[in-house]
Design a protein around this nucleic acid. Sequence first.
DNA 1: GAAAAATGCAACCAAGGGGTTGCATCAATT
DNA 2: AATTGATGCAACCCCTTGGTTGCATTTTTC
Lengths: 114, 114
Amino acid sequence: MSRPEALSPARLKDAAPLFAALGDATRLGLLVSLCAGGPLTVTRLSSQFDVTRQAITKHLEVLSEAGLVKSSRQGRERIWAFEPKRLEDAHQYLERLSKEWDVALARLKAFVET
Amino acid sequence: MSRPEALSPARLKDAAPLFAALGDATRLGLLVSLCAGGPLTVTRLSSQFDVTRQAITKHLEVLSEAGLVKSSRQGRERIWAFEPKRLEDAHQYLERLSKEWDVALARLKAFVET
DNA sequence: GAAAAATGCAACCAAGGGGTTGCATCAATT
DNA sequence: AATTGATGCAACCCCTTGGTTGCATTTTTC
């Protein structure tokens, strides 16, 4: 076996909060903004959405805890930037799942043809 | 442009509930079970987790509304099966996002080197 | 040094989510 | 037809979440 614990319970508990962070339209919008538009400040980000600055702050904190975004202070303002590593994790997790599915299908096929 | 509205707001509202459905450890566990172990009934699935059958039912309904799972009646029991199509959607969405990121990086690089 | 801009912090609120218990139904089996 | 097994339905509970308002704090900037 090359991937012994590919979808172990431990990995589930790691992946769940990651997907949960992606599971909100506003947060996805924030990620898109930070992806395409480069690092931005909270107030500038807020101007692109129809919710309060404080709401955006909370969303950014959620994204930050999920590792999808990171912030740094610069003087009186705080700059938020996209963090691509964690997105790759989510990507890999989905791939593992669909791989598992393919394996199961192949197994079924082999069984039927026997 | 080959992907005119790659990350339009409309797509955000489509992707968010999908990721939200994936954002729970129990639900991810259910998907893994249905992926690897083939179609199963609610009661059999429940035996693999430490929550009530009704809780599992609710989770399955969430997954069903997200299009990640589908059910069919067979006599007195209801069979739940994994549905791979929608997982591909999630996968593509993540790819679009990281692509956007790559493009932005390339743009930045070009700008710096000018 | 005072006004303005960008955040931070806290309390509060309504709604949704994950979970439970209890009971009703519906189908299979003997 | 009576029992047993698999679901379905509904009410209820507690905690989280997304959102708000109001005010304090920290830097700029004039």
